[in-house]
Simulated assay, not measured.
Amino acid sequence: MKSPWLALVQFFPLSIFALYAFWHGAPSDERWLAAFQIGALLALIQLIWVLRQAQPANRLILAANLYLIAGGMAAFFQQWWFLKLYGSLRVAAIFVFILAVGIVTTLCSPAGFIAQAAAPTQQVRTASYYLLAATLIALTVSLYYRGNQTWAAVVPIVSLVILQRILARRVIHAHNNESEGD
Protein backbone atom coordinates (compact mmCIF):
# COMPACT_ATOMS: atom_id res chain seq x y z
CA MET A 1 0.00 0.00 0.00
CA LYS A 2 1.24 3.48 -0.84
CA SER A 3 1.99 5.79 2.04
CA PRO A 4 -0.28 8.79 2.63
CA TRP A 5 2.87 10.95 2.56
CA LEU A 6 3.48 9.93 -1.06
CA ALA A 7 -0.05 11.01 -2.00
CA LEU A 8 0.58 14.44 -0.50
CA VAL A 9 3.86 15.12 -2.31
CA GLN A 10 2.92 13.82 -5.75
CA PHE A 11 1.87 17.22 -7.08
CA PHE A 12 4.47 19.10 -5.00
CA PRO A 13 6.43 20.54 -7.97
CA LEU A 14 3.23 21.72 -9.69
CA SER A 15 1.93 23.17 -6.42
CA ILE A 16 5.17 25.10 -5.77
CA PHE A 17 5.15 26.32 -9.38
CA ALA A 18 1.60 27.69 -9.02
CA LEU A 19 2.22 29.08 -5.53
CA TYR A 20 5.33 30.94 -6.64
CA ALA A 21 3.73 32.23 -9.86
CA PHE A 22 0.52 33.47 -8.22
CA TRP A 23 1.84 34.46 -4.76
CA HIS A 24 1.09 38.16 -5.24
CA GLY A 25 -1.74 38.03 -7.77
CA ALA A 26 -1.36 37.79 -11.52
CA PRO A 27 2.20 36.76 -12.33
CA SER A 28 4.59 38.98 -14.22
CA ASP A 29 6.66 37.59 -17.09
CA GLU A 30 9.70 37.42 -14.81
CA ARG A 31 7.79 35.52 -12.14
CA TRP A 32 6.48 33.07 -14.78
CA LEU A 33 10.02 32.38 -15.96
CA ALA A 34 11.29 31.90 -12.41
CA ALA A 35 8.28 29.72 -11.51
CA PHE A 36 8.92 27.46 -14.49
CA GLN A 37 12.59 27.12 -13.63
CA ILE A 38 11.86 26.33 -9.96
CA GLY A 39 9.06 23.95 -10.93
CA ALA A 40 11.26 22.24 -13.52
CA LEU A 41 14.04 21.64 -11.01
CA LEU A 42 11.62 20.18 -8.47
CA ALA A 43 9.90 18.12 -11.18
CA LEU A 44 13.22 16.73 -12.38
CA ILE A 45 14.20 15.72 -8.85
CA GLN A 46 10.82 14.10 -8.30
CA LEU A 47 10.90 12.40 -11.70
CA ILE A 48 14.30 10.84 -10.99
CA TRP A 49 13.04 9.60 -7.63
CA VAL A 50 9.72 8.25 -9.00
CA LEU A 51 11.31 6.45 -11.94
CA ARG A 52 13.60 4.57 -9.51
CA GLN A 53 10.59 3.04 -7.74
CA ALA A 54 9.47 -0.53 -8.47
CA GLN A 55 5.86 0.37 -9.26
CA PRO A 56 5.00 2.25 -12.47
CA ALA A 57 4.99 6.03 -12.16
CA ASN A 58 1.63 7.76 -11.84
CA ARG A 59 1.01 8.97 -15.38
CA LEU A 60 -0.73 12.19 -14.30
CA ILE A 61 2.24 13.13 -12.14
CA LEU A 62 4.63 12.13 -14.93
CA ALA A 63 2.80 14.39 -17.39
CA ALA A 64 2.68 17.33 -14.96
CA ASN A 65 6.41 16.96 -14.34
CA LEU A 66 7.15 16.80 -18.08
CA TYR A 67 5.05 19.96 -18.54
CA LEU A 68 7.13 21.75 -15.90
CA ILE A 69 10.44 20.46 -17.24
CA ALA A 70 9.56 21.53 -20.79
CA GLY A 71 8.49 24.96 -19.54
CA GLY A 72 11.59 25.31 -17.40
CA MET A 73 13.86 24.36 -20.27
CA ALA A 74 12.07 26.82 -22.56
CA ALA A 75 12.54 29.55 -19.94
CA PHE A 76 16.20 28.68 -19.37
CA PHE A 77 17.01 28.53 -23.09
CA GLN A 78 14.78 31.54 -23.87
CA GLN A 79 12.52 29.68 -26.27
CA TRP A 80 9.88 32.39 -26.31
CA TRP A 81 7.82 30.70 -29.06
CA PHE A 82 7.31 27.70 -26.77
CA LEU A 83 6.38 29.86 -23.81
CA LYS A 84 3.94 31.81 -26.02
CA LEU A 85 2.31 28.50 -26.91
CA TYR A 86 2.04 27.71 -23.19
CA GLY A 87 0.61 31.18 -22.65
CA SER A 88 -2.04 30.76 -25.32
CA LEU A 89 -3.08 27.33 -24.00
CA ARG A 90 -2.73 28.38 -20.37
CA VAL A 91 -3.42 25.48 -18.01
CA ALA A 92 -4.76 23.40 -20.92
CA ALA A 93 -1.11 22.78 -21.85
CA ILE A 94 -0.90 20.40 -18.89
CA PHE A 95 -3.75 18.38 -20.35
CA VAL A 96 -1.94 18.20 -23.70
CA PHE A 97 0.97 16.60 -21.85
CA ILE A 98 -1.39 14.30 -19.95
CA LEU A 99 -3.01 13.24 -23.23
CA ALA A 100 0.38 12.58 -24.85
CA VAL A 101 1.61 10.54 -21.88
CA GLY A 102 -1.72 8.71 -21.83
CA ILE A 103 -1.55 7.76 -25.50
CA VAL A 104 2.06 6.57 -25.29
CA THR A 105 1.56 4.57 -22.09
CA THR A 106 -1.74 3.06 -23.26
CA LEU A 107 -0.17 1.82 -26.46
CA CYS A 108 3.37 1.02 -25.30
CA SER A 109 3.28 0.02 -21.63
CA PRO A 110 1.76 -3.11 -20.06
CA ALA A 111 0.83 -0.91 -17.08
CA GLY A 112 -1.09 1.43 -19.39
CA PHE A 113 -2.27 4.93 -18.64
CA ILE A 114 -3.64 3.76 -15.28
CA ALA A 115 -0.18 2.48 -14.22
CA GLN A 116 -1.23 -1.01 -13.12
CA ALA A 117 1.32 -3.60 -14.18
CA ALA A 118 -0.14 -6.42 -12.06
CA ALA A 119 -3.45 -6.68 -13.96
CA PRO A 120 -4.21 -8.34 -17.31
CA THR A 121 -3.20 -6.22 -20.28
CA GLN A 122 -6.67 -6.08 -21.85
CA GLN A 123 -8.29 -4.83 -18.63
CA VAL A 124 -5.54 -2.25 -18.21
CA ARG A 125 -5.91 -1.13 -21.81
CA THR A 126 -9.70 -0.80 -21.54
CA ALA A 127 -9.43 1.24 -18.34
CA SER A 128 -6.70 3.33 -19.99
CA TYR A 129 -9.03 4.11 -22.91
CA TYR A 130 -11.63 5.38 -20.43
CA LEU A 131 -9.00 7.60 -18.81
CA LEU A 132 -7.92 8.86 -22.26
CA ALA A 133 -11.53 9.77 -23.06
CA ALA A 134 -11.80 11.61 -19.74
CA THR A 135 -8.54 13.43 -20.52
CA LEU A 136 -9.97 14.63 -23.83
CA ILE A 137 -13.00 15.93 -21.95
CA ALA A 138 -10.72 17.60 -19.35
CA LEU A 139 -8.71 19.24 -22.15
CA THR A 140 -11.91 20.53 -23.76
CA VAL A 141 -13.19 21.88 -20.44
CA SER A 142 -9.83 23.50 -19.74
CA LEU A 143 -9.79 25.21 -23.13
CA TYR A 144 -13.39 26.38 -22.75
CA TYR A 145 -12.83 27.82 -19.26
CA ARG A 146 -9.38 29.27 -20.02
CA GLY A 147 -8.61 31.92 -17.42
CA ASN A 148 -10.83 30.42 -14.70
CA GLN A 149 -8.41 28.42 -12.52
CA THR A 150 -11.13 26.47 -10.75
CA TRP A 151 -12.87 25.18 -13.88
CA ALA A 152 -9.87 25.12 -16.20
CA ALA A 153 -7.43 23.45 -13.79
CA VAL A 154 -8.65 22.30 -10.39
CA VAL A 155 -11.87 20.51 -11.35
CA PRO A 156 -10.42 18.68 -14.40
CA ILE A 157 -7.21 17.63 -12.61
CA VAL A 158 -9.01 16.44 -9.48
CA SER A 159 -11.52 14.59 -11.67
CA LEU A 160 -8.74 12.80 -13.55
CA VAL A 161 -6.95 11.88 -10.32
CA ILE A 162 -10.14 10.43 -8.85
CA LEU A 163 -11.03 8.58 -12.05
CA GLN A 164 -7.51 7.15 -12.37
CA ARG A 165 -7.72 5.79 -8.80
CA ILE A 166 -11.18 4.34 -9.36
CA LEU A 167 -10.15 2.65 -12.60
CA ALA A 168 -6.92 1.30 -11.11
CA ARG A 169 -8.73 -0.11 -8.08
CA ARG A 170 -11.43 -1.61 -10.28
CA VAL A 171 -8.88 -3.34 -12.51
CA ILE A 172 -6.91 -4.69 -9.52
CA HIS A 173 -10.10 -5.79 -7.77
CA ALA A 174 -11.32 -7.62 -10.90
CA HIS A 175 -7.91 -9.24 -11.33
CA ASN A 176 -7.82 -10.37 -7.68
CA ASN A 177 -11.32 -11.84 -7.99
CA GLU A 178 -10.29 -13.74 -11.13
CA SER A 179 -7.15 -15.01 -9.39
CA GLU A 180 -9.18 -16.29 -6.42
CA GLY A 181 -11.51 -18.10 -8.79
CA ASP A 182 -8.65 -20.10 -10.35
Results as ranks from 00 to 15, higher is better:
M1V: 02
P4H: 03
W5M: 02
L6P: 01
L6T: 07
L6D: 11
L6Q: 12
L8F: 11
V9F: 07
Q10V: 01
Q10D: 05
F11W: 03
F12L: 04
P13F: 01
P13H: 02
I16Q: 02
I16Y: 03
F17K: 01
A18E: 00
L19E: 01
A21M: 06
F22H: 10
H24A: 12
S28N: 04
S28P: 04
D29G: 15
E30M: 13
L33D: 07
A34W: 15
A35I: 07
Q37P: 00
Q37G: 05
I38N: 08
A40T: 07
L41V: 06
L41I: 02
L42A: 06
A43P: 03
A43V: 01
Q46C: 00
L47H: 14
W49K: 04
A54S: 12
A54I: 01
P56N: 06
R59E: 06
L60D: 00
L62P: 09
A64Q: 09
L66G: 08
Y67M: 12
Y67E: 07
I69N: 08
M73T: 14
A75S: 15
W81G: 00
W81M: 10
F82D: 00
K84V: 10
L85H: 15
Y86G: 00
L89D: 05
R90Y: 15
R90E: 15
R90P: 00
A92T: 00
V96I: 12
F97S: 08
L99E: 10
I103H: 08
V104L: 15
T105L: 10
T105V: 03
L107E: 03
C108P: 00
C108M: 14
S109R: 08
P110T: 09
P110M: 09
A111E: 11
A111M: 12
G112E: 07
Q116N: 11
A117V: 07
T121R: 15
Q122K: 13
T126E: 14
S128K: 09
S128Q: 07
Y129C: 09
Y130V: 09
L131N: 01
A133M: 11
T135Q: 13
I137Y: 02
V141D: 03
L143F: 00
Y145F: 08
G147E: 08
G147V: 04
W151C: 01
A152F: 01
V155Y: 03
P156N: 06
I157W: 13
I157E: 03
I157A: 08
S159Q: 05
S159P: 06
S159N: 05
Q164P: 04
Q164D: 09
Q164W: 11
Q164R: 14
Q164F: 09
R165H: 10
L167P: 02
R169K: 13
R169Y: 12
V171Q: 05
H173A: 14
H173M: 11
N176L: 14
N176I: 11
S179H: 13
S179F: 10
E180C: 02
